[in-house]
Amino acid sequence: MLELLPPLNDHNLPWMDTIHPIVVHFVIAMAVISVIFDFIGVFARRPNLFEVSFWNLLVATVAIFVAIIFGQIEAGLASPYGASRDILNLHSTIGWSLAAVLAVLSAWRYVIRSRDPRSLPLPFLGAGAVLGLLVAVQVTLGNQLIWIYGLHTVKVVEVLRAAQI
């Protein structure tokens, strides 16, 4: 069955380059802008921003599952080494947790929006702040995997392949 898959390239991937970071940057932007618009909408008394925030949150919730699918595939092909294994496992766990948090927040936001689209309760803003914190931690872990450990970079893949000979 494995012979049906395309051969791995110099990034150790069956496609041109990593797809997970592309999709996940979209998720990061949508989730963060959703939280920012919520806070601006509440403190500047601009409830029209709540609509923009809602749709950003909804799109982020859908997109995170696409990011997770590619992230899991690419993590499986990454050949993590040393401390990068633990960081990759934590990154994966927080990624799935973020998907759950986004899904719950989207559902909660939908209920809030259907009851009164012109206001947000403070507990929801607090949950948004927690979302922002989780996203910041996740970004830090992802950056470590790329910029410190170089997973899926050509040089690291070459070294790991040479070591397996």
Rank of each mutant, 00 (worst) to 15 (best):
L102R: 05
Q72Y: 08
R115F: 02
I19W: 09
L4P: 02
T61Q: 06
L145P: 12
L2Y: 04
P80G: 05
G41E: 07
G82M: 04
V156F: 03
W55K: 12
A29D: 00
H11P: 06
P21H: 10
V111K: 01
V111I: 12
F54K: 13
L49D: 09
W147T: 07
Q138C: 08
G71W: 11
D17L: 11
V66Y: 11
A127P: 10
E3V: 05
L88Q: 14
L88A: 13
N56C: 14
P7A: 11
D116F: 00
A107T: 10
L133Y: 13
Q72H: 05
T93H: 05
V154E: 15
Y149T: 02
L4K: 06
H91A: 10
L105H: 05
Q144C: 08
D10W: 01
L2W: 08
V104E: 01
Y110V: 04
F26G: 13
I40T: 05
A31N: 10
F50D: 02
D116V: 02
M1R: 07
D86W: 09
I146V: 15
R45L: 07
A103D: 04
V66E: 10
P47H: 12
F26T: 14
H11W: 10
L145R: 08
H11L: 07
V135W: 07
I22E: 05
H11R: 15
F43D: 01
S84G: 03
V35E: 04
L134K: 01
G132S: 09
M30L: 15
A44Y: 11
L122P: 07
D86K: 02
V66Q: 03
E74W: 05
A136L: 14
R45P: 02
S119Q: 13
Q164Y: 00
F50H: 03
I36M: 13
V137H: 06
K155D: 15
P6T: 07
A83R: 09
N12S: 13
H91M: 09
E51T: 13
L2H: 11
F54L: 13
L125F: 12
L122K: 09
A107R: 01
A162E: 15
P6G: 10
T153P: 02
V156Y: 00
A31S: 15
I64N: 14
G142F: 06
A29H: 03
V27Q: 07
M30Y: 14
L5R: 11
P21M: 10
V130I: 12
A75G: 15
I87V: 15
L98P: 03
I19R: 01
L4W: 01
W108R: 06
L141D: 10
E158Y: 00
G126I: 12
N9V: 08
A63P: 14
P80H: 06
S114I: 05
Q72D: 13
V32W: 03
G150N: 12
S119C: 00
T153W: 01
F70H: 10
D10S: 12
G142R: 09
S119E: 12
N56W: 04
L133V: 14
V52K: 09
E74N: 08
F65I: 06
I165Q: 09
I148N: 14
Q164C: 00
R85N: 14
L58I: 03
V130A: 15
A103W: 03
S34E: 00
W15R: 05
I165E: 09
I112C: 01
V111P: 06
A60T: 07
I64F: 00
L134G: 15
V35Q: 08
G71Q: 13
V101M: 11
N12L: 07
R115G: 04
A163F: 05
A60G: 14
S106P: 04
